[in-house]
Every structure is written in C-alpha cells, then in structure tokens.
Design a protein around this nucleic acid. Structure first.
Lengths: 265, 265
DNA sequence: GAGTGGTCTAGACCACGTC
DNA sequence: ACGTGGTCTAGACCACTCA
C-alpha cells in the first residue's frame, strides 16, 4: 500500500486524521482485536515519520470515538466491550410496587437482569439544601433541607448509571427511605402508607456532555454524552413528592417510553 | 460499606484547566458578554507566562463546553445564544389530531409557538429501501421500499431539529402523505380513514454525538450531543405503521414524557 | 530502571480574514 | 501586509507501571 506522496490537492485531511483512519480500518477489519495493545506513541510516530504530538492527536481522535482506550504508563488498547448491546431501560413502567413478591427490584434492575446481566447498587444518604433545580421541580419557596438517596449503579461490576432521589424530610423521616439500604418493598409503599401515593410522573429528558466528576462516576471514557432524565412524581393533589435525576451513558443505554394504549381523547 | 478507592487526594488540576477556569468565571460573572472577543492565544499565553499550546488547550476545553467559539483568522469569542431557554418538547402528547380547527400543527410546532418562537418546516419526500433500523422497527422481512417524509425544522429561521417519518408505500400511496407539503388535518386522519389508526406509541430515546452531516443539518457547533427519539406507532392489531426518527440538539431541547395519571395496575 | 502516557515548551509554516 | 487560529515539530519533565 503506497501512501500518498502528499500532493495535498483537496482532501484537507490532517495528518492525525489520516493516521487515525488507518488504525480505525485495522480495528474494524479485525486485524486488531478488542483488548489488543496498539503501537506506543513513539512507535506510531516513527512508523509515520511524524512527531509524537501528531501520533498522540491521532489516538485522541480514536479515544473520542470510543474505539481506543489509553492506560497511563501501559499503552493504548483497542477498547473491549465497546459494541455491547445497549441496555433498554423501560422508563415509563410504573414505579408503584406494593407486593413483596419480587423484592425491592425497581425497573432498572429488572431491565438489566432481563437482559442477562447482573445489576448492583451502592446507596449513600445525604442531607442537602435544595438547589435551584430541586426547588423548581419540588415547588419549594426557600432553602429547604432535603434527604437525598444517591445510588451508584453497576452492571456486571462496572459503573453504569446513577440515580439520585430527593425527598422532603417531613415525608421520609423515620422511614427506611433515609437509610442507606434497599427499601422493602419499595419507596412507593412508604408514601402510600403515609397517604401520599404518587399517581403521575413527569420526565424531562435531555442529552448533554457529562462533567468530569460524572464521567468518573459513570465510568465514561471518550466523548460520550449522557442521557439525563429528571423525574418528578406527583400525588393526586398535584403535590410533587419526589425528584429523581437519572444519568445514563449514551453509548450503553436507551430509554423506552410507551404511551397511548388508552383510547384517543 | 466500601468507600470509593480514590478519595480524590488532590485536584491535580492542569495549567490549561486553571486558565479555562478563570475565563469561565469571567464569562459567568458577566465580565465577558456573549459575542465579546476574548484574548488571542498569544495574548493569553503572555498573560499566563505559558506556551501558546497551553493557552490553546484552555480554549479547547471551553469550546467543548460550548462556552466559546473559535473563528479562524478572527479570534475566540464568547458564544452567543448559548444560554437560550431550551425548548420543551412534550413528546408524550398524543398525535391523533382529527379536527381541522387547529390546522396541521403537530406537537413540535405547538410547543415552539407556545414558547413564543416561530416554527417553520421544510419537507422532502424520498423513496428508500428499508435499512436495518427500519426493518427492525417496522417488522419487515426483506428489502421493502419505504416512503420517507424528511422534515427539517427551523425555529426563528435557524435550523433546529429534524424529523424523518417512514411509511409503507401501500399505506400512503395516493394520499397527501406522499406529497412534500403539510397534511391536513394530519397524517393520523389518513390512517384513520384507511382503518389503520394507531393507538400505541413506543419511543426509544438515546443520546449520542451527531455525525458531521447531522451537525450540519441541525446547525450544531461545538461538542454538542443530540437527543435521538425513534418513535414507532402501532395499531390495535400491534401492527407498526410508522417509524419517525427525531433528532434534537441537546443544548436546545428537552423532551418531556408524562405517564401515570391513570390508576396504578 | 526502562518505558509509558500526560503535560508543557518554544519554536515553525500554512490558509485565511481584515485592514 | 499583518495577525489570527490550525497544525506540526522536536525536544523536555513528571508520575506511574512493569519487569
């Protein structure tokens, strides 16, 4: 294969892009398999008679695409598991579990398990002042302390999603909701008992780039956006009693919403 | 309870991040206003006694965040219009308009107009072979020709979203659906007349980076992801009669899904 | 201790917009 | 003609991993 003698007529392709293109082809064709080590930056620079910075730029392009991962002091590797089937999260399934039959498994855990993978959860409880977002969605006037259940979720042992739920203290004080463990049979049962069952849910869905901290918590590498779902649950009095912020890496999740099914108005 | 293995020993902030942080603060505080020119790379490098590459890296961080835009040969500028209120798209509103009272306005146009902005639409009709995605969602066996209504949507004159609907030829042949103009009172009425009203909708929502072509069509600048909604409409016989792919820039839209409201099962 | 990626430096040339 | 950002070079030091 002859490389072009660089007449550089029209393509306007940079050197780094050209190098990235060749590595991309090697990966897609199967010459490099997931987990395989790739040439070091120095080797790549030598092969292409290019400076290390340019070789680095080429790798950065592939990292942003999610094809390659860099490991400090070890090298660059073809990313494994990059082409996993995304997890379908049936976001519109009702969250009003009352029976203890199927345990404290919420929709997320059920969806993960149904797809033959192993869900796990790490729960932390915090008390925070309501920020703007919480005040708006929970219709609070001033700075009110809220109970937060921060759940870091794992699939097959790897960080996979987060779900942070915000509650008014008066609604959950003295209940299992403010303990860092699973709630049996579910948080809905606690609210139902207190005469505050929610009957309506509004989800605001957006796509954005994660902050650095979020990327760390979600195990995101490369330029992968997150799907953010802000869910507010209302009682029949239109009282918002819970706000949950779900974060899912865009390359590993799809959210499924089903509607209609009832007769058209 | 296992605590995190990395308790964040030190911020380990790079020089470029430090510079970016200061510029970010200047923008947020209003010292730099949208459209304002920022220091040239050379100036920034001199101010911070840093190489031009490092100053460049700082700007690149802000560009990725969508706070700054670079214009070749001109300089860097505070991005304008970056802080527009996102358009709330009530994605779970029913699409079964039968009356001609409110015209051919679908949910998207209504949402845009309610928020005091001006929607417009550009419609192209194509006939394509069903690709994998279409075959899967429309439950097709082989390569079937499909009628596609490609709609490029504009808000206040600027490219803002796309919505491409795929139909079986046998369902829409000879109807207004295969003409590149608005359908009165709506596509639902056509299907209703033919005995194929849809009663159920399933949306698959994902977040991803746009392709180059999509970014162009949506007027996306910077590292902004898109919200993709693949909507399939089913008749009461569970027959999928339409697939629509919605693309919305993540920085300009939120999708709102409402569920529950009926009694819990 | 050798080698790696992460960061930074101080130069250079280019295409392009503005003056 | 000049200044800008976009790209590239050839070095350097560091923290870290691995043998």
């Amino acid at each position: 294969m002859t490389t072009t003698p660089t007449p550089a007529p029209a393509p306007a392709q940079t050197l780094a892009e050209e190098i990235a293109e060749e590595i991309r082809a090697l990966i897609r064709s199967g010459r490099h398999n997931p987990g395989d080590p790739l040439p070091t930056e120095k080797e790549l620079a030598a092969q292409w008679r290019v400076s290390r910075g340019t070789a680095r730029s080429a790798y950065q392009l592939l990292i942003d695409e999610g094809l390659v991962v860099a490991q400090r002091s070890r090298g660059h590797f073809v990313r494994s598991g990059a082409r996993w089937t995304p997890i379908m999260w049936r976001a519109s399934d009702p969250e009003n579990n009352l029976s203890t039959d199927d345990g404290p498994q919420d929709t997320w855990a059920r969806c993960v398990r149904e797809q033959g993978r192993e869900p796990a959860e790490d729960i932390r409880i915090e008390i925070v002042e309501a920020d703007d977002k919480a005040r708006q969605h929970l219709q609070l006037a001033g700075p009110v302390p809220l109970i937060v259940r921060r759940r870091s979720r794992f699939v097959d042992g790897a960080p996979s999603a987060t779900a942070d739920s915000f509650y008014l203290r008066e609604h959950v004080q003295g209940t299992a909701v403010e303990l860092p463990s699973q709630v049996y049979p579910g948080v809905y049962a606690v609210f139902d008992e207190r005469g505050l069952p929610w009957i309506r849910t509004v989800d605001e869905v957006s796509a954005r780039m994660p902050t650095r901290e979020e990327a760390r918590r979600l195990g995101i590498v490369g330029a992968v956006p997150v799907l953010e779902v802000v869910r507010v649950s209302y009682t029949d009095q239109q009282l918002p009693v819970r706000m949950t912020v779900f974060l899912k890496p865009g390359d590993r999740y799809k959210a499924v919403f089903e509607h209609g099914g009832e007769s058209p108005r």
